[in-house]
Design a protein around this nucleic acid. Structure first.
Lengths: 177, 177
DNA sequence: GTCTATAATTTGATAGAC
DNA sequence: GTCTATCAAATTATAGAC
């Protein structure tokens, strides 16, 4: 695995645990096994690293979601996106990267804030299409409801340190289509 | 107004914008108009200040919510808590304090993490009682659903920089009782 | 209670050798 | 590409004068 990928891996984990203001180049360097100057070689500024990390996170999400206009039933699509968010909690024990960044959105460098916003816009668009093809009366509202529920469920489940809370909070996710 | 209150005011605003790792004693001191040593006199450590800020935030919430076991209809109670969260967004343009802290929960000093957890437990208890007195089949699930929706709606609305998103996301808050 | 001064450490970032 | 070395600034926190 190349070092650029390893740096983004470390940055993703650190941000999901402590936010953008909660990690340093030296910590990333120690995680990867290099010196901080080497991290700066690949990502000159902290904003560069943050934006690249958020961009890859979005790309991986879209790969997991697959095509939004395919023929699968709404319930299957909602189970898919729910599983993506739940995996981040159960497998990694961490917040969603862009959930962590979104909580501090107005204090982020512009490129990082923009990537965070793009992540949520892409989620909204994917969900809107899923609800629209099901004849939903207000697909835009249903999309942001579902997205808010997923991010909020992660936040509350982690704060209360109980995965069951995530499952309770997202019970409705496939019924109000 | 006494200085201790002014310090907590400043800390609350700073944390709601940039999180616990995103503010410093010098910034707080400058906001209040004193030196950082004076802030340390009132709150020896950053953990002390964070915990005190979260404790006051919970106290103010409970005052706004009033008694959970009173005779008001469920819809009125849900409108009450929804308005509290919406006010934080519309009036202050900021995240919920404990939403911001919850996003970085596993990297917080123990006293701050504990106060954050207590905030959400109090919210859950208040909501659970509200749903239970309405004969809800699963008041615990409904409570965490509502709480996740409120926190998530704040997060997404702020990230997308659109208050309408909050209103769309919380449309269901009073229908699924 | 607030101040000046400062200790001890960490931060983001750069210069230049190899 | 990675390193050593370093800079200038910021960080949490404390000592002691007033």
């Amino acid at each position: 695995m190349n070092i650029r990928t390893a740096i983004i891996d470390a940055a993703e984990a650190r941000i999901r645990i402590a936010g953008f203001h909660g990690f340093s180049f030296r910590e990333i360097a120690a995680d990867v096994g290099v010196k901080s100057a080497s991290v700066h070689y690949h990502f000159p500024t902290k904003a560069d690293l943050g934006a690249a990390t958020a961009a890859r996170y979005l790309q991986l999400l879209l790969e997991q979601l697959g095509d939004a206009i395919d023929a699968r039933p709404l319930a299957v699509k909602l189970d898919t996106i729910k599983a993506v968010f739940r995996n981040g909690l159960v497998r990694d024990g961490m917040m969603c990267l862009c959930g962590a960044l979104g909580a501090e959105i107005s204090s982020l460098p512009a490129p990082v804030a923009l990537q965070t916003k793009t992540f949520f816009e892409e989620c909204r668009t994917w969900l809107r299409r899923a609800f629209a093809t099901n004849g939903n009366v207000d697909p835009d509202a249903s999309a942001v409801q579902c997205l808010a529920l997923l991010e909020g469920a992660l936040l509350i489940a982690r704060s209360l340190d109980d995965v069951v809370v995530f499952d309770q909070a997202t019970l409705l996710a496939k019924t109000h289509g």
